Amino acid sequence: MFKFKTPANETKKIMSDVASGKLSNTNFEEKCIDKIKDLTNHEEVKITSSGNNSIFIALSAIEGDIIVPDQGGWHGFKQIAKFLGKNIITLKTDLGLINPENIDDLELNENSALIFTSFAGYTAEQDIKSISKYCRNNNITTIEDASAGIGDKENVLGNGKYCDIIIASTGSPKIINVGNGGFITTSNPEIFTKTTLPQKLSKTTEIICSGIDSELDNVSEKLELTLNATSYLKKHVPHVIHANKRGVNVIISTDDAKSISWDLKKRLTTDKSGFITTCPNYNRIKQKAIAVEIKNLDYNCLKKEYLDKILNEINNLL
């Protein structure tokens, strides 16, 4: 049986110690803010109560249109933008991958923003550098949801050198896995001066901050493990979408997605939630496919013996 990812034992212990008052003399919010600054190369950081609250703060600061990918993003982008009364512009993508030149075809108001995830549909790394270059040349704010890309050892994803605003969820089963919380970063102080009310509505606790602080200590290693496991599967499974791109899940194109995913769920059981999802799905891709959510698995289940079991079951059904 596969195990669903949960916070590390060290993380759970330190959160428990903070909750019980054993570590009341440590300011964990300051500690994790300093670590996030180092990771993102941004000067300003706010810890929030969730990833969606981070999105709420980011979009509240935007005066123009909100550009969202036509697939491979997060449905919360559109929901929150709509709630805030923002004009939403949909950008055509290559199964989630953004080609900045397609923005040329859009009619945008001034001070607009493009919001996207580090990995399209969790499966394919966005070309952050080209997106950043285009948007900065055209006065478009970039907002990267780096929930799955924070800690990138290649220093591209979740890097404030390229994106104006970085947001992340630290809920389960994200790379920074605390079960709750999130953060938003920027080097533009106006983002936070214009959003004081949303920030007040998104307060977090020292318990959550202590967990984030603990998880940040080895976030890069955990992301690398996930990327390597996904890469291994992509090399040995047919019909993979964006097979040559870094990602934290594997999406397999098939016309028989529903029945195959049903069989896989019965054969690849977990102790909690599953790690097989079915497309079409805006958060993944909008065509028939199966998504194997490697990012959801306990790190002990990313060893070759477990990955080979996944491979065998998939290849037997395709």
Rank of each mutant, 00 (worst) to 15 (best):
V156E: 13
N111Q: 11
D105F: 14
F2L: 06
I241T: 00
V219L: 14
K295L: 15
S259K: 03
S210D: 02
S253V: 11
G211R: 01
P198D: 04
D164M: 06
K12M: 12
T193Q: 12
L297N: 04
D152G: 04
K86F: 06
S130D: 14
I62E: 04
P189D: 10
L318W: 02
V248I: 02
V292K: 04
N52A: 12
E29S: 07
T186H: 10
T205V: 03
D263V: 14
H239G: 07
N99H: 13
T195C: 12
V219H: 12
I184F: 06
I285A: 06
E29I: 04
E206P: 00
D256W: 00
E63D: 15
F2E: 04
I207V: 03
V18P: 01
E101L: 10
S112Q: 05
K295P: 14
T204K: 04
S147D: 01
I165L: 00
D145P: 12
N111M: 07
N315E: 00
R284E: 14
I66N: 03
N9T: 10
T204G: 02
P7Y: 06
T11L: 06
G274W: 13
S202Q: 08
A229S: 08
N102L: 06
E29N: 06
K153V: 01
P238W: 06
V45E: 08
D94Q: 13
F77W: 10
I290E: 05
E293A: 07
G149Y: 09
D70M: 05
G179I: 05
T270S: 10
I260K: 13
N177T: 03
N53K: 14
I131G: 08
V240M: 07
E206M: 08
A289R: 09
Q79I: 15
G76I: 02
K86I: 03
G179Q: 11
Y122I: 13
N52I: 13
F83N: 14
Y299L: 12
T186C: 11
A291D: 12
A120F: 00
A113N: 09
G121Q: 13
I207G: 00
V248Q: 01
T48V: 15
D213R: 09
N244W: 09
G181W: 11
I165P: 01
K31N: 15
S169P: 04
L318T: 12
M15C: 02
K13Q: 13
I294Y: 03
K35V: 10
Y134N: 02
I251C: 05
I191K: 07
T117W: 08
N111C: 09
P198G: 03
M15W: 07
K272D: 15
P198K: 03
A229F: 06
N218S: 15
A61Y: 05
I310G: 00
D217R: 13
E206K: 12
E110A: 13
G149V: 06
N188H: 03
N41A: 15
K22E: 04
L225W: 01
G171D: 13
E206D: 10
D164W: 02
I167S: 00
I36K: 00
N9G: 11
F4I: 05
N188I: 03
